[in-house]
Design a protein around this nucleic acid. Structure first.
Lengths: 218, 218
DNA sequence: AGCTAAGGCTAATAGCTATAGCTAATGCTA
DNA sequence: TAGCATTAGCTATAGCTATTAGCCTTAGCT
């Protein structure tokens, strides 16, 4: 998470809009620093402005309101999280064996971007409701998982209910639990050596225990 | 959660301190209403004062600061949560079969007290760190679970690792996941019919799958 | 009955988000 | 290169917020 440059609309070849996009990316970067210090809900326009070296009202040339800034951060986080999961999925084996690498990649991203993860997964900022546009990648990711679980069911590695809403909810709760414990108890611990995220690799087996395949395939 | 009267230090038979305790309890009640409307992190001293019908500075006669008010809420929540779990445990059967009723009672309490649960389990209020005194019941509860898991291990219902830190962390993550999904996706849904909390009864089986007993006891 | 302190108040400080309106300079276009 | 629209900064201001200081009345203990 060193740069947000590639996550803001490119803004054409126009020199002005290029500079504008750079400034927006810089603001997002500073906002994440702010949130790391004061908590995800503790983002202050004034403090971000001070960090940027301008007066507070100038920030409103780039983001219409504090909530708009949150929405941009939420959107960037969701896009990055989705991209991370998809990259891991590309190299993962098919079927149930591919679950762990993808889950691990998501858990690692959350541990490395704890304030964005809080904003995205907990929604605890008073008054903030993400826009449809910013939320869209989360729906894409859920559809990815639905397809992945269905494939494992078709391979005879999981019971049929696993791919229904109920099963997907359980799977989501399993990963959410480990990430939640991480974020609330050791937000600065990182992925390696985390007390809670080391359990992520057990999720496929737990999930299979909840939805065992119908019989032993030949 | 209709009254906080029994959760504030009783304050002796002294009439003054009795009235004082009543006012404090009333403030806590109004604060929870506030948080339900504006989010756990959106508690405002001014708005609580307006609800109570006094000027904002008068609140400081009862709580030293906004964070002190959070700490009182955190403490009340932890004590009530512990009490709820222990009441359920009294009537639960021994061993692994007793896990589900206790887990269910905790999940139900969280669903019925979503803003306190957010404050207690997520800690997302900027600048708030609970006092040792307020946090103590959480440690008691963890010790309760440690004893309960150890008992199940000794009965041959779980593998040995279940009672170690690692196993207790996994168990905590399982319940935290379902409660987290509930709080972030359906905070106003209640316990019955919750998409996520209906999985709570599966936790003992999942936990046993992760720590199976060593062999079939005779 | 008298006194203490509880519990209200107003005033004031400092910081917050956000808007209005001014100004200088940037950089596109003719 | 000259002109000009837009951008991106600024100050001032309104209306919030938490919190402190200090006053004053009255409740209620002794």
């Amino acid at each position: 998470m060193t740069s947000f440059a590639d996550d803001i609309e490119p803004g054409g070849a126009d020199r002005r809009s290029r500079r504008r996009a750079e400034t927006k990316a810089e603001i997002l970067r500073l906002a994440v620093e702010e949130m790391a210090e004061h908590g995800a809900a503790g983002l202050s326009m004034s403090r971000v402005a001070r960090r940027l070296g301008v007066q507070p009202p100038s920030l409103y040339k780039y983001f219409d309101s504090r909530m708009a800034l949150y929405d941009a951060l939420f959107g960037v986080g969701q896009r990055r999280y989705l991209r991370t999961a998809r990259r891991a999925a590309e190299q993962a084996p098919p079927g149930l064996a591919g679950f762990a690498p993808v889950l691990r990649a998501g858990a690692r991203w959350s541990a490395e971007n704890p304030v964005l993860a809080q904003l995205m997964f907990w929604r605890t900022v008073p008054g903030f409701v993400p826009s449809e546009r910013a939320y869209a990648p989360a729906l894409d990711l859920r559809r990815d998982w639905e397809a992945r679980v269905r494939a494992a069911v078709e391979r005879g590695e999981l019971g049929a209910g696993a791919a229904a809403e109920e099963g997907l909810d359980l799977l989501a709760a399993l990963i959410a639990g480990m990430v939640s414990m991480q974020l609330s108890n050791e937000p600065d611990a990182g992925f390696e050596g985390s007390r809670f995220l080391r359990h992520v690799d057990r999720i496929p087996a737990l999930f299979a225990a909840a939805y065992p395949p119908p019989a032993e395939g030949g």
